Structures are given as C-alpha cells and as structure tokens.
Computed example of a mutant assay.
Amino acid sequence: MTADRKILLIGAAAAIGVLAGGALFLTLQGGTDTSGCSNSAVAGGMDSFGTEFTLTRQDGQRVTSAEVFDRPSLLYFGYTFCPDVCPLDSARNAEAATLLEESGKEVQTVFVTVDPRRDTPEILADYTSLFSDDMIGLTGSDEEIAAVNKGWRNYYKANDEEDQEYYLVDHMTNTYLVMPGEQTVEFFSRDTPPEQMAETVACYMDAAT
C-alpha cells in the first residue's frame, strides 16, 4: 500500500459521514416481519434480494456464495478509494460484529467492491485488514460484479468520464444481513448504530435456532 493510499484511508476513517450519491429505491414501510425482529419491510419482500455468485476473495481464491455465507453475514457494497462513507460503514459493521462475538454469536462481515477495475484482491486485502482480520473482501470481472449488485438491487455508477484513475463511484450504502443458506432477511441504513444492528442480528439468530 502506498503512503498516499494510507493517508487517504486513515483520513477517511476519521471523516464525517456524508451519504454517497445514488438512488435509494428500497421502500420502507411500517409493520413487523414474521420473526418479530424488525419494524421495517421492503417492497417486494426481502426474499427478492440476493443471487448465487462466484467471485474472487482477497487471498486470490475463487469462492461461491454458498462458501461465503456459511454463517450470518453483514454484506456491504462499496469501494476502497471511497473517501468517507465506505470506511465509516465498514468500521460500523466490524464493530457490530465484535459486539455480537462478545455475546457469543459468530457473525462475519463481507465487503463486495463496486469498483473491480481498481479493487484487486491485493488492494482489498489491505483495505479489509484495516477493519477486521475476519472481513471478507470480494472482487471479480465487471460482469460478475454487475450481476451480484443486480441481485441485491444495488445501484452504482463510476464517474470516470474525465478521470480514469482518481474517479469516484456513486453507490447505495445499505448493509444486508444474509443468513446461512444464502437467505437475505434484513437491511440496515447507514445511520443505524452498531448497537442497534447487533441487537437486530442477534434477534434473527435466536429466531433461527
């Protein structure tokens, strides 16, 4: 990792969160889901989120969605060059996972890039290590990343028309709870605190036992 990149990531982790561009088309509705763990729902139901995939992990290994989601997982779509939102959200997700682990519940965090051109496995390894030794980073071809994002209805767009090196990427900032069996059951907006996230995840885990 270059010195400039380290400075960027360290500064980003301390930055004040600003919502990244991108249209949020998840429609929040009142009500409670069948597990009693959430007070929100999404148009079409959470069953419509997710897809099978094969992507490249930060260690260079190709892995399937079944291999990734072998335990409750907090799934986030972002990119390593993101100056503010992604580092803060990744740190929040890692903190929620730590809170759950402290209460005896095993949860992992998963980071899927929306910028496969720059986010090589090596770059993802550097990035994920800043937040957790257990965070999984995933990349792939443009087509593979597009398919995964489509599966989770995630909007993203690279603003690279004028700059092919230091461009930013608009993207949604939801975190999804994916249970073993590749079932997406909940999502969290970026203003959800880690304590609330951990409480909700624990509820789903208890309901599944």
Rank of each mutant, 00 (worst) to 15 (best):
T2W: 06
R5F: 14
K6W: 05
K6V: 11
I10L: 10
G11C: 04
A15E: 13
I16W: 04
I16Q: 13
G17C: 03
L19W: 00
G21K: 10
F25K: 10
L26V: 11
T27P: 02
G31A: 10
T32Q: 14
T32R: 15
D33L: 05
T34W: 04
S38Q: 12
S40N: 09
A41P: 01
G44F: 02
M46L: 13
M46K: 07
S48T: 15
E52G: 15
T56Y: 01
Q58N: 11
D59G: 02
G60Q: 09
G60L: 07
A66K: 13
V68G: 03
F69P: 01
P72C: 06
S73V: 10
F77Y: 06
Y79M: 05
Y79F: 15
C82M: 07
C82T: 06
P83D: 10
D84F: 07
V85W: 01
L88N: 14
D89E: 14
D89T: 15
R92S: 13
R92V: 11
R92M: 13
N93C: 04
A97R: 12
A97T: 05
A97F: 06
E101K: 15
S103P: 00
V107D: 05
T109D: 02
T109F: 06
P116C: 04
R118K: 11
D119R: 00
E122Y: 06
A125I: 02
T128Y: 03
T128H: 06
S129F: 01
S129H: 11
L130H: 11
F131K: 01
M135F: 10
M135W: 04
M135Y: 04
I136S: 01
I136A: 08
L138W: 05
S141R: 01
I145K: 00
A146Q: 14
V148T: 14
N149A: 15
N149K: 11
K150G: 12
G151V: 09
W152I: 10
N154L: 09
Y155D: 08
Y156S: 14
D160R: 03
E161K: 12
E161S: 09
E162A: 15
D163W: 05
Y166Q: 11
Y166N: 15
Y167A: 03
H171T: 04
N174Q: 13
N174R: 08
Y176C: 01
L177D: 02
M179G: 07
G181L: 07
E182K: 13
Q183D: 14
E186P: 00
F187V: 03
F187L: 15
R190S: 14
P193H: 09
A198I: 05
T200P: 02
A202N: 12
C203H: 02
A207Q: 11
A208R: 15
T209G: 09
T209C: 00
